[in-house]
Amino acid sequence: MTDTLQGQTEAHEQTQPAVTTMPMVKALNAGLRAAMADDDNVLLMGEDIGPLGGVFRVTEGLHAEFGGSRVLDTPLAESGIIGTAIGLAMNGFRPVCEIQFDGFVFPGFNQITTQLAKLTNKHTGALQMPVVIRIPYGGHIGAVEHHQESPETYFAHTPGLRVLSPSTSNDAYWMIQEAIRSPDPVVFFEPKSRYWQKGEVDTSAHGAPLHSSRVVRQGSDATIIAHGAMVTTALQAAELAADEGISLEVVDLRSISPIDFEPVLASVRKTGRLIVAQEASGFVSVGSEIAATVAERAFYSLEAPVLRVSGFDVPFPAARLENDFLPDADRILEAVDRSLAY
């Protein structure tokens, strides 16, 4: 390539935003690749993430590109993955661990909660713990036991962890890179039912700040708050409601710890009505925390009690019952009706 052509190409890249349409699984792959190219200390660890590319193919091609010392197919032991990631972080690495499915994180729960979450505090700040734990989570895929759960509350409850959940391809691309750059441990929940949903990714422009919630649809009658896969469901509900002349505002939480409450409170002050939607069981959940905080901080703006639309407080059922367990747009709209009728 001549200098002239090179210059033209660069000028072209600067003027044209690099927007590509891709499913979330590809966006995550691109984000991981960018993070690994950017910092040699970033390495991936997990089960079947090497030549196979992970059971969801999020790491496809990375083993071939970066080699077995950067993309580690580990022994089959979740505590071992997290515990050795902690040791690698103590040695200056930035490990990104893949837990194969949501329900399989618990063998590693001790290392995450008693060690990873607390080590910076125990070292009075002298030690940073830049470890990311990626967890494909949630239902809608008709899978067997332990493969459809939403355990984010356990981690949000633990001081020292940051908890994220992107809902779009663009957020997935940017948030995974920012999670890897964070000096703190991040539990990164990927809504696996949206892995193959396509969306625009702008690789030239940064998305929203990491720990910010965002209004993704403007409305005036009631507010729906959701995270992960439930954002799509909330948008479907808003679309259906619009047909009936009801204007719903939808807020994508994006970050579960910390929660960025300002956009939530601003929306509630505008609409006066709030419904929190989540796949997880409702008892002592992220939705409970939002309801409590909104009641504390926006009490006089509320025209109706905050309502939660959640999975039931039962074990995630057999796949043929998942549609009875998981909230859908109709269950959100039923709560909207109750709120508006209050």
């Binding site: 690698l88 103590m90 040695n91 001790n110 060690q115």
Partner: peptide
């Protein structure tokens, strides 16, 4: 480390890093 055995994995991870 007061959680019994937790440090063994940290040591192994640290030593993996030494090799890498």
């Amino acid at each position: 480390t007061l959680v019994l055995g937790a440090q063994a994995l940290h040591a192994t991870g640290y030593a993996m890093g030494t090799t890498f």
